[in-house]
Amino acid sequence: MSSFDRANEAVSFLTNGLPEGLRKPQVAIVCGSGLGGLAETVQSEPRAEFDYASIPHFPRSTVAGHAGKLVFGLLGQKIPAVLMVGRAHFYEGHSMEQVTFPIRVFKQLGVDTVVLTNAAGGLNSDYSVGDITLLNDHLFLAGLAGTHPLRGPNDEDFGVRFPPLSDAYDLELRRHVHRAWKEITTPQTNRKLHEGVYETRAESRMLRMMGADVVGMSTVPEIVVARHCGLRVLAMSLVTNNAVLAPVPRGDEELLQDKAAGELSALLEEGKAGHEEVLEAGRAAAVDMQISMEQKLTTITEIGGTNSGERLW
Rank of each mutant, 00 (worst) to 15 (best):
G251M: 14
A212R: 05
L144R: 13
M209V: 03
E270K: 11
K296L: 13
L38H: 05
E310C: 05
A243P: 06
K192T: 00
V105E: 12
P247M: 04
T186V: 06
N118T: 13
D131Q: 09
V224D: 05
A48N: 00
L83A: 05
H176C: 09
Q188R: 13
V114A: 12
A260I: 01
A266Q: 14
G159L: 11
V115W: 13
H94N: 13
L109W: 14
L18Q: 10
G146W: 05
Q290N: 10
I132F: 14
L123Q: 05
F162L: 15
L268W: 11
P56L: 06
A243W: 02
K78E: 15
A286P: 00
H176D: 08
I300D: 11
E277S: 09
A64N: 10
L144H: 07
A145P: 07
S218I: 02
E310W: 01
P59H: 03
E45M: 02
L18S: 08
V197L: 10
K182S: 15
H228R: 04
F158A: 05
G262L: 03
H194W: 15
A284Y: 12
G304W: 06
P249R: 06
R311Q: 13
F140E: 01
L38G: 07
V99H: 09
W181P: 03
V11H: 04
P59F: 04
E92V: 11
L165D: 04
V197G: 09
L144Y: 06
T100A: 08
E270D: 07
L173C: 05
Y198I: 02
E277C: 00
G73C: 06
E263A: 15
K192V: 00
G110I: 12
F140S: 10
V278A: 05
F50L: 03
P46L: 07
F90P: 08
Y52A: 02
S61P: 10
A81L: 06
S95H: 06
E310Q: 14
D288W: 12
V111F: 12
H89Q: 03
L256N: 10
S54Q: 14
G73P: 07
V244W: 08
V244T: 08
P19Y: 10
R161G: 02
G196S: 09
